[in-house]
């Protein structure tokens, strides 16, 4: 992130933090103190959340004042900025990584065998990042083969180590 954008991010975060602190305080105040069970009121589950909520509110206020002094309230979000973000190659790479990993970890795992899911993830990860646009598929068969080899070897060996050495029962 650009240094000049930092006060803006801080300004937004401080507001989020204060709202968060207040909601923690509200939530904590609704917690029972089990006084009906003849126990010490200081053992109530809301004691520490109340303390933390107050601290969030305090830290949020300090940050708010600081970011206002640094003119962080000028957010300057325009259509151009957003479009530029979407066109940036950095964003693409980030989204591919995040997307692949989320699909693998949250959707594939548990629905198919660990080896298959992992192999698929490894293979598509390597291929997506090494694939050269505009070059024929046939010319890149070495890339594909290496990706396949890596996928099979690593998913197999990880499965082995954890299944037999560390006694992890895999999902799926």
């Amino acid at each position: 992130m650009k240094e000049s954008n930092m006060p803006k991010a801080d300004f937004l975060m401080s507001i989020v933090l204060m709202i968060f602190g207040i909601s923690v305080l509200i939530n904590a105040s609704g917690m029972p103190n089990f006084a009906d069970q003849n126990v010490s009121p200081y053992s109530a589950p809301g004691v520490v959340p109340t303390l933390l909520g107050a601290i969030f509110l305090l830290l949020g206020m300090i940050m708010l004042i600081r970011s206002i002094l640094r003119k962080g309230y000028r957010l300057g979000i325009t259509r151009n900025n957003i479009a530029a973000w979407f066109k940036d190659q950095t964003t693409h790479r980030f989204l591919i990584t995040l997307g692949l990993s989320v699909v693998y970890a949250l959707i594939l795992l548990g629905r198919m065998h660990f080896l298959l899911a992992t192999g698929l993830y490894m293979f598509s990860f390597v291929v997506l990042f090494e694939y050269k646009r505009g070059v024929g598929l046939f010319a890149q068969k070495k890339t594909l083969l290496m990706a396949l080899l890596l996928a099979v070897l690593t998913s197999g060996s990880i499965y082995w180590v954890f299944r037999y050495l560390f006694l992890v029962n895999f999902p799926g």
């Binding site: 990993s101 090494e130 890596l150 690593t154 990880i158 954890f162």
Partner: peptide, 13 residues
């Protein structure tokens, strides 16, 4: 791109 997916699989496991 070869190392990171391995790291992620290890993270998952």
């Amino acid at each position: 791109q070869k190392l990171m997916p391995i790291v992620f699989v290890l993270c998952v496991v």
